[in-house]
Amino acid sequence: MLTTRHGVRVLAAADLDEFLALARRDPVVNVFAIHRAQTTSLEPRWLGGEMWGRYEGGELVAACHVAANLVPVQATPEDAVVFAERALARRRTASTIVGPQQAVLPFWETVGPAWGAPRDARWDQRHLVLAGEPEVDPDPGVRLTARTDLDVLYPACVAMYTEEVGVSPEIGGGSDLYRTRVVQLISRGWSFARFDRGELVFKAEVACATPDAAQIQGVWVPPHRRGEGLAVSGMAAVVAHVRQRISPAVSLYVNEWNAPARRAYERVGFRETARFATVMF
């Protein structure tokens, strides 16, 4: 393994404590990377990729999760360029680059000419956090989902993903893998929904969690039920469930142009703490 006082090297299990100390400087923004590190011990076979660390004077100053999701961790613009230059020396494996704007933008400016046009790029996403009680009453009908809900829940998950990402998760034979992910979230107690006479009218999931924070994904209300306040009371219920059972702080990020969602999250009590950007291939 490369050991260096300066530069970039692949982190391993022996580096876990040092990595966690770095990432916990902002445990909510870095919840994904912390979750991945804790569940894989930075072993490449479990990461499905690598965790890179940048050192200055023998100290770990920044990191980058390099797998299907490429995620800078505590990276300055200078750190991001260094990681990007290393990325250019290998084949692109990432399907998504996501993280704080200050790192994603210079990373993309460096790799973009070689990596080609992305399928989509979202340069202004609001990272929101709620670390207290919701400011509206939770919907008492929102509950943990169960395997018996799968026939109704799974099509809603596909619809949400397709609407949000722009392509179906089932393309290319991905339905089995995506269904497995939905079942995994149910099994972990990370999937929430409200049903109205057998119809799913609100859903959301925990994407990743640590003892410090949980990140929400997949918030969705079917188009014909939007405008009824289901997302507001539903998200209040999710926050209450998560803070009681999983983590004290609840986070998510939302596209700048999604005004209805931003208004709903603000009513629940979420406040902006950072700006994210996402590039998708």
Rank of each mutant, 00 (worst) to 15 (best):
T3C: 02
T3H: 13
T4Y: 05
T4P: 02
R9K: 14
V10I: 03
L22I: 08
F32Q: 08
R36N: 04
R36M: 11
R36Q: 10
R36E: 09
Q38E: 15
T40I: 06
R45W: 09
G48S: 05
E50Q: 14
M51L: 14
G53I: 05
R54F: 04
Y55F: 13
G58A: 00
V61Y: 07
L70A: 06
P72W: 11
Q74L: 11
Q74W: 05
A75H: 01
A80N: 11
A80T: 03
F83L: 11
R86Y: 06
L88W: 12
R90C: 00
R91L: 07
T93G: 09
I97H: 03
Q101H: 12
A103S: 10
F107H: 02
W108G: 08
E109F: 06
V111R: 02
G112Y: 06
G116M: 02
A121D: 07
V129H: 01
D139H: 03
T145D: 03
D151F: 07
P155F: 05
V158C: 01
S168A: 12
S168Y: 01
S168F: 02
S175N: 06
Y178A: 08
S187A: 15
A193L: 04
E199W: 02
V201A: 04
V201R: 02
F202M: 10
K203E: 03
V206T: 03
I216R: 05
G218K: 01
R226H: 09
G227C: 07
G229M: 09
G229Q: 09
L230I: 07
V232R: 15
V238R: 07
V238C: 08
R243A: 06
S251M: 08
S251G: 02
E256D: 15
R262P: 10
R267T: 10
R267K: 15
G269H: 11
R275I: 04
R275D: 05
R275P: 01
F276I: 06
